[in-house]
């Protein structure tokens, strides 16, 4: 895609306008806009305290905004909690990995969504259909090319990257609309990070757009189709990684540079821009 060419924009999968969330005197979200297009990996970046987490929480139902509008597939929507967002096909991979370490992989894949046996065994005796859950877990692992050995092994026997893979596979398996990943590579080594980034690509290639919250600029530049730069509780810029250098993006994030309407940048903080080495002209 050439950014200069006039594009006919597809309808966003998930979008928001003018979101506000205040806690007493603290404004966590200050009129933020948001837009996620079909089939893209959208990175959400921002300095600590910029309000990324609050924004993501609002989009995934973990907090209810005071004002503003969220749309899913073009329809206005209000989530009363994370479960409702999940019911609408938005799955989140949390930073601290919402997996149960002592339980096996298949049990984790289906945690909270267990399949019961057909007939009276299931309805009267509430018996789990463990075979079906193993089989479908295996199918999903295969579809995402995740190789973990036995699905009957406890998650705690896996490495950090493999655990992350389980969490991502679970989200991808259940997500119909969006997968949200909060710092998925933060705790991982170089090789494992690369594998998780690959996995994110495969999720996107399955047609599920991914929101990636990350601090890691190289990862963001490697995988994101677009970057949402969050600053002071609102969207500072929505850019393509090809159009800017990493240093410029960091400068936008910290407020040293501002993005103009035509996509250029202007220095908004002389000193900071010099320090960041992005002062032009």
């Amino acid at each position: 895609m050439k950014d200069s060419a006039p594009e006919k924009k597809p309808e966003p999968v998930l979008s928001a306008r003018g979101l506000v969330k205040r806690y007493g005197h603290v404004t966590a979200i200050d009129g933020a806009d948001f837009e996620l297009l079909p089939g893209e990996v959208l990175a959400v970046i921002g300095d600590n305290g910029a309000g990324k987490t609050s924004l993501i929480k609002a989009l995934t139902g973990a907090l209810v905004p005071d004002a503003g509008e969220i749309r899913l597939h073009g329809e206005p929507i209000r989530f009363s909690g994370p479960l409702e967002a999940r019911r609408h096909g938005i799955e989140t991979v949390y930073q601290d990995l919402a997996v149960a370490p002592s339980m096996d992989i298949a049990a984790n894949m289906f945690l909270g969504r267990e399949i019961r046996r057909a007939g009276p065994l299931g309805t009267v005796f509430r018996m789990l259909d463990k075979k079906a859950m193993r089989r479908e877990s295996a199918d999903y692992m295969a579809a995402l090319q995740i190789r973990l050995g036995s699905l009957g092994q406890a998650v705690e026997t896996l490495s950090g990257g493999q655990r992350q893979a389980v969490a991502v596979a679970r989200a991808a398996a259940w997500a119909r609309s969006v997968v949200v990943m909060d710092e998925p590579t933060a705790a991982l080594g170089v090789k494992e990070s690369a594998q998780v980034l690959d996995l994110i690509r495969r999720v996107r290639d399955k047609g599920i757009p991914v929101i990636l919250i990350s601090h890691n600029m190289p990862h963001v530049f490697e995988i994101a189709d677009r970057i949402h730069v969050h600053r002071l509780g609102r969207r500072e810029a929505l850019i393509k990684p090809a159009d800017y250098s990493m240093a410029e993006v960091v400068a936008i994030m910290t407020g040293a540079l501002s993005v103009t309407a035509d996509g250029g940048t202007v220095v908004s903080d002389d000193e900071a821009a010099s320090a960041a080495g992005v002062r032009r002209g």
Binding site: P82, L83, R86, T92, Y94, D96, L97, A98, V99, A100, P101, S102, M103, A107, L111, G112, R113, E114, R116, F125, R126, M127, L128
Partner: peptide, 21 residues
């Protein structure tokens, strides 16, 4: 049963269990 699995999940981490629905 699913109830049993939820008991174990709760013991692993109440927060993770909550986030799992």
């Amino acid at each position: 049963t699913a109830w049993g699995r939820h008991v174990y999940a709760l013991g692993n981490s109440a927060e993770s269990a909550r986030l799992s629905g």
